[in-house]
Amino acid sequence: MNSPVEHLFTVLNKTAEILQEELSCSYLDAIAETGENLFHETILQDEVSELTKKRLEKEYSLIKMDKFSNEEIRKAFQLLILKGMKNSAQPNHQMTPDTVGLFISYLITKLMEKKSNFTILDPAIGSGNLLTTILNQNSNKEITGFGVDIDDLLVKLAYVSANLQQHSIQLFNQDSLEQLFIEPVDMVVSDLPVGYYPNDIGAEKFELRAEKGHSYSHHLFIEQSMKQVKEGGYLLFLIPNSLFNSEQAVKLNQYIKDNSFIQGLIQLPISLFASESAAKSIFILQRKGATIIPPKQALLVDLPKFSNKVAMNDIIERINEWFKEEKSESSPV
Rank of each mutant, 00 (worst) to 15 (best):
Met312Pro: 03
Ala311Ser: 03
Gln254Thr: 14
Pro295Trp: 07
Leu236Ala: 06
Asn241Val: 06
Tyr255Trp: 03
Asn313Lys: 08
Phe244Arg: 04
Ala274Pro: 09
Leu238Arg: 07
Phe283Asp: 04
Leu300Val: 13
Leu252Met: 04
Pro240Glu: 01
Glu247Thr: 15
Ile262Asp: 10
Gly232Ser: 02
Lys227Ser: 12
Ile266Glu: 06
Ser246Arg: 13
Phe273Trp: 02
Ile292Thr: 10
Leu303Phe: 07
Asp258Arg: 11
Ile293Asn: 15
Ser246Ala: 10
Asp258Pro: 09
Ile270Arg: 13
Ile284Lys: 02
Ala274Ile: 11
Asn308Arg: 06
Leu272Phe: 06
Pro240Val: 01
Met226Pro: 03
Val250Gln: 15
Lys305Ile: 13
Lys280Gly: 05
Lys227Cys: 10
Ile316His: 01
Tyr255Met: 02
Val250Leu: 15
Lys305Glu: 15
Lys227His: 10
Asn313Ala: 08
Ala274His: 11
Lys288His: 03
Pro294His: 11
Pro240Leu: 02
Gln267Asn: 15
Pro294Leu: 09
Glu276Thr: 14
Glu276Pro: 14
Asn253His: 11
Ile315Asn: 00
Ala279His: 04
Pro294Val: 10
Met226Arg: 04
Ile316Arg: 00
Gln263Lys: 14
Gln286Ala: 09
Leu285Trp: 00
Lys230Glu: 10
Gln286Glu: 10
Ile266Leu: 08
Phe244Pro: 09
Lys280Cys: 05
Gln297Gly: 10
Gly232Thr: 04
Ile282Glu: 06
Phe273Asn: 00
Ser277Gly: 12
Ser242Arg: 09
Val229His: 09
Lys227Pro: 10
Lys251Asn: 13
Glu247Asp: 14
Ala274Trp: 05
Lys230Phe: 07
Ser275Val: 00
Gly264Pro: 00
Pro295Met: 07
Glu317Val: 13
Lys251Gln: 11
Ile292Val: 12
Leu236His: 03
Ile319Met: 00
Ile292Tyr: 08
Ala298Pro: 09
Ser277Asp: 10
Tyr234Lys: 00
Phe283Thr: 03
Leu300His: 12
Gly233His: 01
Asn241Ser: 08
Leu238Ser: 07
Tyr255Leu: 07
Asn253Cys: 11
Gln267Lys: 15
Gln286Ile: 11
Leu299Pro: 05
Asp314Glu: 11
Asn241Gln: 08
Ser281Pro: 04
Gln297Val: 14
Tyr234Thr: 02
Ile316Tyr: 01
Leu268Ile: 01
Phe273Thr: 01
Val229Phe: 07
Ile239His: 01
Asp258Ala: 09
Ile293His: 15
Tyr255Thr: 02
Leu236Cys: 02
Ser271Gln: 12
Pro294Ile: 10
Ile270Tyr: 13
Ser246Cys: 10
Phe306Cys: 01
Thr291His: 14
